[in-house]
């Protein structure tokens, strides 16, 4: 009888957690569909459905759904998932819950790439390409510096901070020399984040990078747990710690750089969504990583819906994530403290 009640108790939590992870992973689907209805031109569910399945709808409606809204929404979902997953992975391997996906200076590097592309007038794909390269370059530099000083966690974080502020200064330098009437506003708006210009051509490179990064981290996700132990413990458990840490950072950087190059700088998601996911399904990365992916996608889709529909003009994403995200985080935080669990 002892054994029976024991088994039943375990099953209940494990079934609940598995169900929660599955629900979070599926959550973006209905939100994408619902978001297809929203916009400056409100559409009915039937029109959207018909557009997706090739039914009879006016060509303008089909174009709006398939060529404008769908790529943007799918990009929003991927950006959200990428930032949340890389944030969760980085918080794990840096053993620090305050770390986020931008810790290694990816955003600043991507910002520099985008700013340069705008000054050089190289068009939307040039902006995406250069900011992607800039992001990878900055994080690569941070990793190189970190490795040169022994590859420990602290030096890696410190290198990220250094590279971040260095590249931020470079962005300011480019802004300073940019044409104040045309280029400067462009750079400033890009840095505030937004998805209004995303089309399929922007979406596919993002999808390819996401497939590699998300796929890799999903495969590694149980091992990520071991990297959250002390280095000696992880080594004693037979882990090639430095190699695995490097691989994780590389995959996370790929995700972040690909996302930032499409969406501009979007804060908050890569820091808070991992915490929210951890509060829901616990710290085991086996469940945390997929949960963070689904939750991140859902949250960014909702933010993007607000950005598109709240005011006649688009609101930059980074402003929204900050204004709404911070109070929400605060409420979550207070609830957790009241529950007496602390915030971990």
């Amino acid at each position: 009888m002892h054994a029976v009640s024991r088994g039943a108790k375990r099953a209940s939590w494990e079934v609940r957690r598995a169900g929660l992870v599955l629900a979070l992973c599926l959550l973006p689907l209905p939100i994408v569909f619902g978001s297809l209805l929203l916009g400056r031109m409100d559409l009915g569910a039937r029109e959207v459905w018909a557009s997706l399945l090739g039914g009879a709808v006016p060509e303008t409606v089909r174009a709006l759904v398939l060529r404008v809204r769908l790529p943007r929404l799918l990009a929003a979902a991927l950006v959200g998932a990428n930032l949340a997953v890389s944030g969760a992975a980085f918080q794990g391997i840096f053993r620090n819950p305050l770390v986020e996906s931008r810790i290694l200076g990816v955003s600043a590097g991507a910002g520099l790439g985008a700013a340069l592309a705008m000054v050089l007038r190289s068009g939307p794909l040039g902006i995406q390409g250069l900011s992607f390269i800039g992001g990878l370059l900055a994080a690569g530099l941070a990793m190189l510096l970190g490795t040169a000083f022994g590859g420990g966690i602290l030096v890696l974080v410190l290198s990220g901070v250094l590279v971040n502020s260095f590249f931020s200064s470079l962005v300011s330098l480019v802004k300073y020399f940019a044409d104040p009437y045309v280029q400067l506003p462009g750079i400033t708006f890009w840095l505030m984040g937004g998805l209004s210009t995303v089309r399929w051509a922007d979406f596919w490179p993002l999808a390819a990078a996401s497939a590699i990064g998300l796929g890799g981290l999903l495969l590694l996700r149980w091992r990520l747990n071991l990297l959250t132990l002390s280095e000696a413990e992880a080594q004693a458990l037979g882990l090639p710690v430095k190699r695995l840490r490097f691989l994780t950072v590389a995959l996370g950087t790929l995700l972040t750089a690909a996302s930032v190059s499409v969406s501009g700088v979007v804060g908050w998601i890569g820091l808070i969504v991992p915490h929210a996911a951890r509060a829901l399904v616990g710290p085991d990365h086996l469940f945390l990583i997929p949960a963070a992916a689904g939750l991140g996608a859902a949250v960014l889709l909702i933010f993007d819906d607000i950005a598109r529909t709240l005011l006649p003009t688009e609101i930059p994403l980074d402003i929204l994530t900050g204004l709404i995200g911070v109070p929400v985080f605060f409420l979550l935080f207070m609830r957790q403290i009241r529950k007496g669990g602390g915030w971990r």
Binding site: P97, T228, L239, R278, G341
Partner: peptide, 23 residues
């Protein structure tokens, strides 16, 4: 190789140093 070694020698540190609240 590290994994083979870990199959044969287990190390028990003084305190768990996990950054998160594992069960």
């Amino acid at each position: 190789p590290p994994r083979e070694r870990a199959k044969r020698i287990a190390y028990v540190p003084q305190f768990p140093e996990a950054a998160f609240a594992y069960t």
